[in-house]
Design a binder for these strands. Sequence first.
DNA 1: ATACACCTTCGAGTGAACTTTAAGTCAAGT
DNA 2: ACTTGACTTAAAGTTCACTCGAAGGTGTAT
Lengths: 149, 149
Amino acid sequence: MFYTIGEMAQKLDVAPSTLRYYDKEGLLPFVERSSGGIRMFKDEDMEWLRLLGCLKKAGMPLREIKAFMDWSRQGDATIDRRLDLIEKQRQSVLEQQKQLEDTLLMLDYKRWYYQTAQEAGTCAVHDTLSLERVPERFRPLKEAWKVGE
Amino acid sequence: MFYTIGEMAQKLDVAPSTLRYYDKEGLLPFVERSSGGIRMFKDEDMEWLRLLGCLKKAGMPLREIKAFMDWSRQGDATIDRRLDLIEKQRQSVLEQQKQLEDTLLMLDYKRWYYQTAQEAGTCAVHDTLSLERVPERFRPLKEAWKVGE
DNA sequence: ATACACCTTCGAGTGAACTTTAAGTCAAGT
DNA sequence: ACTTGACTTAAAGTTCACTCGAAGGTGTAT
């Protein structure tokens, strides 16, 4: 079962031009062509494309994704390098998770801040708010950051 | 206590040119200048800059961060819009967290895959590996994705 | 007073990841 | 055979977030 670039793009929710761009950059060396030159995507191609999307969302640059792809095609001699790359990226994801947690706490604080201000009709309520009326989870944040407005 | 752009950049671990760029884009309307035109950063400016860095790492474009900054300076009439923006970004962070968790599971699988391959000296071990020798946490992944190489 | 490090603006350049455009080809339906 | 819509390429354009270079000003130490 084959798909055209448009069908595959729809399945993956990306623009066809994006897939052409990836192909041009050598990230899709496996896609076959019809006699007329039209790309024919297979179901198994989607696995690699999903992995690609996953790595991309984790912040890996296309150049590194390509390196991984190239090494994969070179066989067992590149296992070490591939493992290194995976571990490097894994570390990066762990750091990003920590970062997002900090950001979420901050956003939760801001949300509470503006919800409170909305009810009062003014941000000025926060000037006259004693510390014990600030939810506990936000207190370390206020101290470490002194986040006001 | 005032800091020059270089000192502030060092504190925040960014390039001075980055801070000048942010200023040019209207993200730092509060920085004062000496009589000679040199930027004088205050300690409290760092709070906003840290918030900025936090939002940036959460994927918020500078244009939206600027909107938030502009609204903040316009006073209580913009509380609703600010709350909307915060909630939108909070939602985006929650989605990113889910995404990173998926990616981490995938990277953990790949790590196990290549560690196993490294010990065996070849990726071919995985062809002859029965399903019950694949760690349990990776099995749903294999099924949903059929991730091989 | 002069040296020196660091500051200023402005405009141009960079790199990543697409996206669009133009000119043309392919394949299916009538 | 012809129309139509989706495909092809190459090259140029876009957006984002910086980053750099040139030419000149600032401020402090000696």
